[in-house]
């Protein structure tokens, strides 16, 4: 038996909306520690890792580890039916291949029950090493989204360079070139407005912009985003979900042969 209750159905809806274009099918692994999902996109260039800790739920019960394979577009269809302030309860048991989503209005006057068919998904899990990164940049998530969208109109790839003074995003294409330079900014009223650059050694990496633009669909989930880079390693783009976990996106770099 698995049962979990979230104060805001809208949170899970937003999470699924932010990843469903990248991964259409995925298996949620449920255990006493929470709900986790790891999946590669169809081209096997990027990876999504979602972690929702059990202590971030209002109620969480998982008698034993349990896998729930879901089509995320179908899941999104159902979650869209939740009211803005509805609570969400998820229920599933191993006896039937269904997960139930219960949407309850704040005054308990409306209770909607949606049952989603579970599916068997063959996927391979990758072991992500706990690496030290050469550079870590935290910046407002809206700023990162603007940068990747703006550069996406100029070129297909972005070259990200981190030095101790700034982080540069550069793109070039048929119509010309663009460089956006962000300096460290610590003296802000709100902590989420800061741009923080932690550099062990300078890095310079090239990535396909369309994936980064896709990752930035998660912007509404967190006011700030953390970007971790090491030479010739996948970049990590992390959105922290307050009090419950994170969504991390990994993207393999483009490397000269």
């Amino acid at each position: 038996m698995f049962e979990a209750q979230m104060a805001q159905a809208a949170l899970l809806k937003q999470i699924i909306e932010s990843i469903r274009e990248l991964i259409t099918e995925a298996t949620f692994e449920v255990s006493g520690t929470g709900m986790m999902l790891q999946a590669m996109d169809s081209s096997h260039v990027s990876l999504v890792a979602l972690n929702l800790r059990s202590d971030g739920f209002q109620l969480f019960r998982a008698d034993r580890p349990f896998s729930m394979g879901m089509n995320l577009n179908h899941m999104a269809k159902m979650l869209k039916c939740a009211g803005k302030d509805d609570t969400l309860t998820m229920r599933a048991d191993e006896a039937n291949d269904l997960v139930t989503f219960l949407f309850e209005s704040p005054g308990n006057e409306r209770l909607a029950e949606f049952e989603l068919k579970l599916m068997d998904i063959t996927s391979e899990n990758l072991g992500i090493p706990d690496a030290e990164y050469s550079a870590t940049v935290s910046m407002p998530s809206a700023e990162f989204q603007r940068i990747v969208k703006d550069l996406g109109s100029i070129g297909d790839t972005v070259e990200i360079t981190v030095t101790k003074d700034d982080v540069r995003f550069a793109a070039s294409g048929d119509i010309g070139n663009a460089t956006i330079k962000c300096r460290q900014l610590l003296d802000t009223e709100k902590p989420e407005d800061r741009t923080l650059i932690e550099m062990v050694e300078p890095v310079n990496l090239t990535f396909a912009l369309r994936y980064l633009i896709n990752f930035s669909k998660a912007t509404s989930l967190a006011p700030s985003v953390t970007i971790k880079l090491s030479t010739e390693m996948p970049v990590v783009v992390e959105y922290k979900l307050s009090d419950i976990g994170y969504v991390r996106f990994y993207l393999a770099p483009k490397i000269e042969d």
């Binding site: 990876l47 090493p129 996948p234 770099p253 490397i255």
Partner: peptide
């Protein structure tokens, strides 16, 4: 031109 790598070439299969 730099070539796109696959993600599994960096992270080991489990």
């Amino acid at each position: 031109q730099p070539q796109q790598r696959g993600i599994s070439s960096f992270f080991g299969r489990q």
